[in-house]
């Protein structure tokens, strides 16, 4: 797994790694990818992918609106809030 790929995965995942962890992860990912290639030995031609093992259909909910929560309780566990907003470092308006 090359540096560029690791960098790309880290960006997509919003993670970073110090040099030591990065080397360890690279070795692990190489090993894991080597290991999952055992899948290639199975012929899956004409096999449909399976997302859930139990054959169930998606249930639907009636369109009823309820208010069953308290914003203050939600925001009491948030790192940073003001006037009911969650706050994040300033995002510069792109336009």
């Amino acid at each position: 797994m090359d540096d560029e790929t690791i960098e790309r995965l880290l960006t997509l995942s919003q993670l970073s790694l110090d040099i030591e962890d990065r080397e360890k992860i690279r070795r692990d990912l190489d090993a894991i990818i080597g290991f999952i290639e055992i899948m290639d030995q199975v012929n899956t031609e004409e096999v449909e992918p399976l997302a859930h093992a139990v054959d169930l259909d998606q249930p639907l909910r009636k369109d009823r609106a309820v208010i069953d929560f308290d914003r203050d309780v939600f925001q009491s566990i948030a790192p940073k809030t003001a006037d009911g907003f969650y706050l994040v470092p300033k995002v510069l308006d792109q336009n």
Binding site: K80, D83, F85, Y86, L87, V88, P89, K90, V91
Partner: peptide, 8 residues
């Protein structure tokens, strides 16, 4: 709305 932050 906020000088240092973006509100969500």
């Amino acid at each position: 709305r906020f000088s240092e932050s973006t509100g969500i």
